[in-house]
């Protein structure tokens, strides 16, 4: 090697010597350890399966996550959007409704079909009311159609006996809780309906435990008391998720009292 250096001119030799004089670096102390670690790591997941499946699983997971999120957005638009609005307006409807003759709210056309399918006691009112969806509840008793509608209910053979002495009664029906301009929905949840009937309480496993039944409310007048567990309305089980078509009427309420189930008619 030295004889090769001798062939160089003085300047090149200077450069070569300079490079040769550069301080040398050594490998760190854990060098061998790390090399063996890498070798072991590369030997373990032998086979191409590992390299293919990891991205494949990741991709499947992402797709699933996307689907869940997408569906979650859809269902939350359904469920979570409505209750806050309903809760916010709860006090007003309850206090308005009790003294008012009729608390039926109109609902738009597209709800009509769901009403008929969902409620066990569909009636003529539902379909008739569809004709004028924009009416406001305050005006309802004054309109002539309203009077004729009252008759139509009787003709429909409702099992609830109407009391002529109390023509104006809190006729419990599910209100349309949608704010102005809100297009979708047409359903309210069970807590809203129970609150409209003058019931306060909590949901539990077997139904809605009544802590207070407002004396002037429809439920109290039907005979529901504090301590009862409301099991169903018109045969439809009461759960927090149970939803009622707005505009439908509630005619019977099933409660469990001291372990005994009973069905009470709601007078109008």
């Amino acid at each position: 090697m030295t004889n090769e250096l001798e062939e160089l001119n003085a300047e090149d030799r200077q450069v070569a010597a300079m490079l040769n004089a550069l301080p040398r670096v050594d490998a760190p102390a854990d060098f061998d350890h790390k090399v063996r670690g890498r070798i072991a790591a590369r030997r373990q997941p032998s086979g191409p399966g590992w390299r293919i499946f990891v991205p494949a699983f990741a991709a499947v997971f992402l797709v699933a996550l996307g689907a869940v999120l997408y569906l979650g957005v859809l269902s939350s638009a359904d469920v979570t959007d409505v209750p806050p609005i309903a809760e916010a307006s709860t006090p007003a409807p309850v206090s308005n409704r009790v003294p008012e003759p009729s608390v039926q709210l109109p609902e738009p056309t597209e709800v009509a079909s769901t009403v008929n399918e969902d409620t066990p006691a569909p009636n003529d009112r539902v379909t008739e009311r569809v004709a004028s969806p924009q009416r406001r509840p305050e005006r309802r008793p004054q309109t002539p159609e309203q009077i004729s509608e009252g008759g139509s209910v009787d003709r429909a053979g409702s099992p609830v006996t109407s009391n002529p002495d109390r023509p104006v009664n809190s006729n419990v029906s599910v209100p349309d809780m949608r704010p102005p301009g809100f297009e979708g929905g047409g359903q309210v949840d069970s807590s809203e309906v129970l609150s409209l009937m003058g019931l306060k309480g909590n949901f539990q496993a077997d139904g809605f435990l009544v802590s207070n039944a407002e004396a002037s409310g429809a439920a109290a007048r039907a005979g529901v008391r504090a301590g009862d567990v409301v099991e169903s309305l018109d045969g439809k089980r009461i759960e927090p998720e149970t939803r009622f078509a707005s505009g439908s009427e509630v005619r019977t309420i099933s409660v469990k009292r001291n372990g005994e189930s009973m069905t009470l008619r709601i007078n109008r």
Partner: peptide, 8 residues
């Protein structure tokens, strides 16, 4: 034998 030369 070679870890230092290779590293350098």
């Amino acid at each position: 034998r070679y870890r230092n030369p290779i590293t350098n």
